[in-house]
Design a protein around this nucleic acid. Structure first.
Length: 951
RNA sequence: GCAGGGGUGGCAGAGCCUGGCCAAAUGCGACGGGCUUAGGACCCGUUUCCUUUAGAGGAUGCAAGAGUUCAAAUCUCUUCCCCUGCACCA
């Protein structure tokens, strides 16, 4: 069996028969869409998870009789492709190495300095990979998000959003490269670090006798009540400046430079750090006089280059004051405690901080307890972090007006009060500074003016989105909460960028629509993309989309004003109306907080209710040999390589079906081998089954029928919920165990095996379509298994009884083996084994006990002659019956009702006698308890025949 | 910090919603045996501890602790730990 050959054979057959090209019909529609791939890299096996899962659903629904559409397009908007081209221009070695990993020839790489060339190349590459993976895609509908005709849809969409007032203008902080003069995201930084922007409160400390302020940035404005002095960097340059035309503020020159990206900063004079030391300030919250001291730890580049000193709550401040004291300075500075920890604090540190001896200096507690072999700065750093964290967690304010308030709440309140009282301003800082742009420059925070946002915070819109969301089936159901959180959380989203590929922003033609915002309703485009491919782009006017997607206006007028053929206009409307009624959307969990949420919002406001999303499926990722795939680990496996090596179906089963939706699946050599072996086994059995004789149905044949029908039933429930792990375990693994068990029971019955395999092969079709087709054909069927009807269970063939009886045989064997092995230990060799079938009155008692779970009532029945007769307990059996019930008393909860009668059990064992003696390598005889002279006879229980090993 | 998900035997991973048949499926690994010239494949058995020459009994056990219950991996509470996301970026 050569997977490669089978893959090619059936892919070709599918293509030639165009079975995945779907058009409007009388059947129920089912449309499956996946977050389209970004065309700046070839696919690796990780991509197979989401596309493969979607394909499994598409293939399953097709077999369920739906008219399934699985389209695909490509994403090329935004900056990554530009960045890619730029990196290649600069001969970026890492990128070239990555491309080589995917076997991209040098001649191609040489041409990849052109963004469009890159996009085209990867479009082809990815399409080829998807084709070889066997996805049932209708390729006629493909498009790229930078195609002009697609831009028309985006323009139309933004026209609607604007008319609803959802586009707003405002300020926004971004990571910024002063050298390249553009916004910097994760993709643009060295080591791919996301610039982490945080807000800080910069408090104004009035300088005594001057009309100016010292500006101190802090994360903990609530500690301003404990501020005793100010620290500056003695050796640094400071400036006095106006910020946005207001005030005279002292801050470090470095800080002033950085703040120019956030405010209009006018420097009016320069002053050295040491000259500042002679000034005094006033604490805006306590009106206390505060001296200015040099602080050994103050960095001119961080914050404002000036720090408000809170020695009670900041270890660095405390130590700086101590050092000054040693030099006879700052003698009158006393720490002021403003946050109290509970006396029974949870950590050692917190407990100490609350102790009397550290009464007003909790910082000291942290410092002392953190004294390690580390450098002092490192220890102080750790102490600071912990104190900050613990005070946030457990601390309560001691300041009147805020007494007892938890610190985070106080922080927010006090910050707001300072800001509204004009006692502070808000600045942005880079929390993970320094971050380097790829060009080598330090990234700063810039506040971008005139930024356009989509206002997802709009209450009306949010309410609509929630309404739409309530009607969506989320798989797996447990990710529903994440969506709810996302819908609540999403607020303003910047929507225009100054660079990148994509559609121009209608309200500012200098800008490009941001690349997640331009792809929130693109799935609707699939319904018409194949129809309008040759229509002149200019004709795709607003009224065309209004008619097609919103049913506004009429086709004749639209045709007249746009010049698009009347019939075509109507067909577009019909196509959208047909397909968009049932859609399933697929992606990874990383898109919940952006794309998928935006998808819901945009659909809710643009489309009418019948076309709102119906289902969203979120799946986990793929680990490679237990590790996350990453460039640095060098364990990225190109998709086409893996298909070549293992075959599409083994790979699909491993990547798509070996884990449940939410968990990561694992790609490994061992797993591949396991699946491969099982596929081969099924294939071999199918081959052999052709020549198997058929005969009358035996117990074990009914058993196999019961199993397969039960499997069809459970597998259908599982695939419906995309619980693919359970599904594939049942279909691939368990079914083989069942077949083996069946074969061990004697010569197989051809018709039964063939029926079993036929169902199995169809169940396998969604995950392993190529092999399914191959075996389906081998077994003499015409047509494609991909188009066969999904098997439906025959409930009448599902039998608990038959399955329980087969289990009985297994337990008889294992019981007997255990006895035999005990005998052998004692040096005795078994000659034969007598199996004794329990009498019917025991069965009756089992049923009574398992029903009532009451020893007492059953005993009463036995002792009552009439009842006993009804229960068919003869007078001679009464004594035995009482003993029996007493024997079961201990395990009353484990007593099960009896499934078969004495006669049935006897027949079962007799029928399986050959199998039993073979399994036990010993001759076996069956007898009834009533007629048995074995001393073990009374041990016989219903479902558990007595075993007498004769030596 | 906030939000979401999780913690099960050597490993992976079911079970948890709907408590009892759970010393816990299945796969992998390991060990012993069979088959084989040999290896692979395949087949059988073992894989928490103790006891047991009759199919068994007992102890411990599903992150830790407490609770509910006749009965807890499963329900409730507390604590600890891990993963993911926190935006203008695809």
């Amino acid at each position: 069996m050569d997977y490669r050959e089978i893959d090619r054979k059936w892919q070709k057959a599918w293509d030639e028969s165009r079975i995945f090209e779907s058009d409007v019909s009388g059947k129920e529609p089912y449309m499956v869409t996946v977050a389209f791939p970004y065309v700046n890299a070839p696919q690796h096996i990780g991509h197979m998870r989401v596309y493969g899962t979607a394909d499994v659903l598409a293939r399953y629904k097709r077999m369920r009789g739906y008219n399934v559409l699985f389209p695909m397009a490509f994403h090329a908007t935004g900056t990554p492709i530009l960045a890619f081209a730029k990196r290649l221009k600069n001969n970026d070695k890492d990128l070239i190495a990555e491309l080589k990993l995917f076997h991209i020839p040098d001649s191609e790489i040489a041409q990849m300095t052109d963004p469009l060339y890159i996009a085209n190349y990867f479009v082809k590459e990815i399409e080829n990979g998807m084709h070889r993976a066997g996805y049932s895609i209708d390729w006629r509908r493909k498009f790229v998000s930078i195609d002009p005709f697609f831009s028309k849809l985006v323009e139309w969409q933004f026209g609607i959003l604007n008319s609803k007032g959802y586009l707003v203008k405002g300020k926004h902080p971004v990571g910024w490269c002063p050298n390249e003069n553009n916004a910097v995201g994760m993709h643009d930084t060295k080591k791919d670090v996301e610039p982490d922007i945080e807000k800080e409160t910069a408090i104004k400390f009035k300088v005594d006798g001057e009309d100016s302020f010292i500006l101190c940035a802090t994360y903990r404005p609530e500690t301003v009540f404990g501020a005793t002095n100010i620290f500056i960097s003695e050796a640094s340059k400071y400036v006095s400046c106006k910020i946005d035309g207001k005030g005279n503020y002292y801050l470090s020159k470095a800080a002033a430079q950085a703040l120019k990206f956030q405010f209009n900063v006018e420097e009016t004079s320069e002053i050295s750090g040491s000259d500042l030391l002679s000034k005094r300030c006033i604490n805006p919250s306590t009106n206390a006089q505060m001296p200015i001291f040099p602080g050994f730890f103050v960095d001119e580049g961080i914050g404002t280059g000036a720090v408000m000193s809170v020695p009670a709550h900041a270890p660095f401040d405390y130590v700086a004051i101590e050092r000054l004291r040693k030099d006879g300075k700052a003698l009158d500075i006393k720490p002021v405690k403003v946050i109290e920890m509970p006396a029974n604090g949870v950590s050692e540190f917190a407990k100490a901080a609350a102790r009397q001896d550290y009464f007003d200096m909790p910082a000291l507690a942290y410092i002392e307890l953190f004294k390690t072999g580390d450098s002092e700065d490192a220890a102080l750093e750790s102490a600071t972090k912990l104190q900050y964290r613990e005070e946030s967690h457990y601390g309560k304010m001691m300041i009147s007006g805020y007494e007892g308030m938890a610190e985070p709440e106080a922080r927010e309140r006090i910050s707001k009060e300072l800001l509204s009282g004009d006692k502070a301003i808000e600045i942005y800082v880079l929390a993970n500074s320094p971050v380097f742009c790829r060009c080598g420059y330090n990234v700063v925070v810039k506040v971008v003016d005139n930024q356009w946002f989509l206002n997802y915070g709009n209450q009306e819109w949010k309410a609509k989105a929630k309404e739409a969301f309530s009607g969506i089936v989320i798989l797996p159901e447990k990710s529903r909460k994440a969506f709810e959180a996302a819908i609540d959380w999403i607020d303003l989203r910047a929507v225009a960028r100054s660079q990148g590929l994509g559609t121009r922003f209608p309200l500012d033609s200098e800008k490009i629509i941001e690349s997640l915002s331009d792809s929130t309703i693109y799935m609707s485009f699939y319904t018409i993309s194949n129809l309008i491919r040759d229509v002149p782009v200019e004709s795709l006017k607003q009224e065309f989309f209004d008619y097609v997607f919103l049913n506004k206006g009429d086709a004749a007028k639209v045709s007249a004003s746009t010049g698009i053929d009347f019939q075509l206009v109507k067909r577009c409307r019909e196509s959208f109306d047909y397909w968009y009624r049932m859609t399933s959307r697929h992606s990874g969990p990383d898109l919940i907080f952006n794309h998928l949420t935006m998808y819901i919002f945009n659909h809710a406001t643009i489309f009418d209710k019948p076309y709102w999303p119906k289902q969203i499926v979120v799946n986990g990722s793929v680990l490679s040999e237990g590790e996350k795939m990453s460039k640095s680990l060098g364990n990225i496996v190109p998709l086409v390589d893996a298909i070549e090596k293992y075959g599409a179906d083994v790979l699909r089963s491993m990547v798509v079906a070996s884990a449940d939706l939410f968990s990561d699946s694992e790609f490994s050599e061992v797993a591949a081998r396991g699946i491969d072996e099982r596929f081969r086994y099924i294939n071999d059995m199918a081959e052999k089954s052709g020549s198997m004789e058929s005969g009358e149905l035996r117990h074990i044949d009914y058993w196999l029928y019961s199993r397969i029908n039960r499997k069809i039933k459970s597998a259908t429930v599982q695939i419906e919920r995309l619980e693919l792990r359970g599904f594939s375990t049942g279909v691939i693994y368990d079914s083989i165990l069942e077949l083996k068990k069946y074969l061990a029971r004697g010569p197989p019955n051809g018709i039964v095996v063939r029926d079993y395999l036929s169902s199995l092969v169809l169940l396998l079709a969604p995950i392993a379509p190529h092999i399914s087709e191959e075996i389906w054909h081998m077994m003499g069927n015409a047509g494609f298994s991909s188009l066969e009807k999904w098997p439906s269970p025959d409930e009448s063939m599902i039998s608990d009884k038959i399955e329980a009886e087969e289990e009985l045989l297994e337990s008889v064997i294992s019981d007997s083996k255990q006895v035999v092995s005990l005998m052998r230990k004692g040096g005795k060799e078994p000659k034969s084994i007598r199996l004794i079938v329990a009498e019917d009155w025991k069965r009756v008692l089992n049923n009574e006990l398992s029903g009532s779970r009451s020893i007492k009532s059953v005993m009463e029945k036995i002792n009552n002659a009439e009842e006993a007769a009804r229960l068919k307990i003869g007078d001679g059996d009464r004594e035995k019956a009482i003993n029996y019930v007493q024997q079961l008393a201990k395990k009353i909860n484990a007593v099960k009702p009896s499934v078969s009668t004495q006669e049935e059990e006897y027949n079962l064992l007799s029928g399986a006698r050959e199998y039993l003696s073979e399994s036990l390598s010993c001759s076996v005889s069956i007898e009834l308890e009533a007629h048995s002279d074995s001393k073990r006879a009374s041990n016989a229980l219903p479902q558990k025949p007595g075993v007498d090993v004769v030596t």
